[in-house]
Computed example of a mutant assay.
Amino acid sequence: MSHQCEHEHHDHSPPPVTNSTQSLYEHINFLQVVCLNAVAKGSDNQSACVFKTQDEKYNVSRYLESDADCQMIIHVPFTGTCKLFSIVLRCNRTDGGYSSPKTIKLYKNFNKNVDFDTLSESKDDHHFENPQDIGIGVGIETDVLDDSTFVEHHLPRHIFQNCYSLTLFIQDNWTADEDDLTCCFYLELRGEYTGERASNDAIPLMTVYESAPNPVDHQKLEYEHENMELGM
């Protein structure tokens, strides 16, 4: 179904409520998670900087920070197929060389090279805007016990079924200055694990490598308020 049809037949009813028991944390293939243009802060393990257990979700000592500019790619493979319901993010506020991430594009089961050039030239399966200045400041050393600093983005469920991987592309920021860096403190994927492991024949061979990020595209995308919730 095209994005045009989705908007023409958009359902304005509230999205189904999710909860932390629907976290797909235990079904992520952490050994194959790849983060591009990202520097691990507080840990040598990039995936551990953003994927945290419910007991650690308020921890801000570990996070990912973009490197050359504001853009960042997080490629998340699963141990089997899943249905995705929502994404919970905790990012940075705009302050002192950092800017809140704005446009985030999602690619389901992306079967091409995962790099900035290829993703920029490929049609996303869904995109949304992260709200401006909802998040936390960079450099805080103690846990931040504030649920309002998390944002849950509900996904169109008819699109994100039979997922064996999800690729997130943080494309730009709210200051429209590509030199302002991006931080991601927490990323949670909620949904349902189907228990069906994808066969080797079903998973295309794919290379993942670093590439120089493209210039930030500042085109404003439609912001669907009903698909975004503050807090947990």
Score class of each variant (00 low, 15 high):
Gln4Cys: 09
Glu8His: 11
Glu8Asp: 12
Asp11Leu: 12
Val17Met: 07
Asn19Leu: 04
Gln22Gly: 04
Gln22Leu: 05
Leu24Lys: 07
His27Val: 09
Ile28Ser: 09
Phe30Leu: 04
Phe30Ser: 02
Val34Trp: 01
Cys35Ala: 15
Cys35Asp: 08
Ala38Tyr: 03
Ala40Val: 08
Gly42Leu: 11
Ser43Gly: 09
Asn45Asp: 15
Gln46Phe: 09
Ser47Pro: 07
Ala48Pro: 05
Cys49Gln: 08
Val50Glu: 14
Gln54Asp: 14
Val60Ile: 14
Asp69Phe: 00
Cys70Gly: 03
Met72Leu: 07
Ile74Val: 12
His75Asn: 10
Pro77Lys: 01
Pro77Phe: 04
Thr79Lys: 04
Cys82Pro: 00
Cys82Asn: 03
Ser86Cys: 00
Ile87Met: 01
Gly96Ile: 00
Thr103Ile: 03
Leu106Pro: 05
Leu106Ile: 09
Lys108Arg: 14
Lys108Cys: 03
Val114Gln: 14
Val114Met: 14
Phe116Leu: 06
Thr118Pro: 15
Glu121Arg: 15
Asp125Tyr: 02
Phe128Ile: 03
Glu129Thr: 09
Pro131Trp: 02
Val138Ile: 13
Asp143Gln: 11
Ser148Asn: 13
His153Ile: 15
Ile159Pro: 01
Ile170Lys: 03
Gln171Thr: 12
Asn173Phe: 02
Asp177Glu: 10
Asp180Phe: 12
Asp180Ile: 02
Leu181His: 04
Thr182Gly: 05
Thr182Tyr: 06
Thr182Asn: 13
Cys183Asp: 01
Cys184Pro: 00
Leu187Cys: 11
Arg190Leu: 10
Gly191Ser: 05
Gly195Cys: 05
Glu196His: 07
Glu196Cys: 05
Met206Cys: 15
Val208Pro: 05
Pro213Phe: 04
Pro213Thr: 06
His218Lys: 11
Gln219Glu: 12
Gln219Leu: 10
Glu224Tyr: 05
His225Arg: 10
Glu226Gln: 05
Met228Ala: 08
Met228Asp: 02
Glu229Met: 08
Glu229Leu: 07
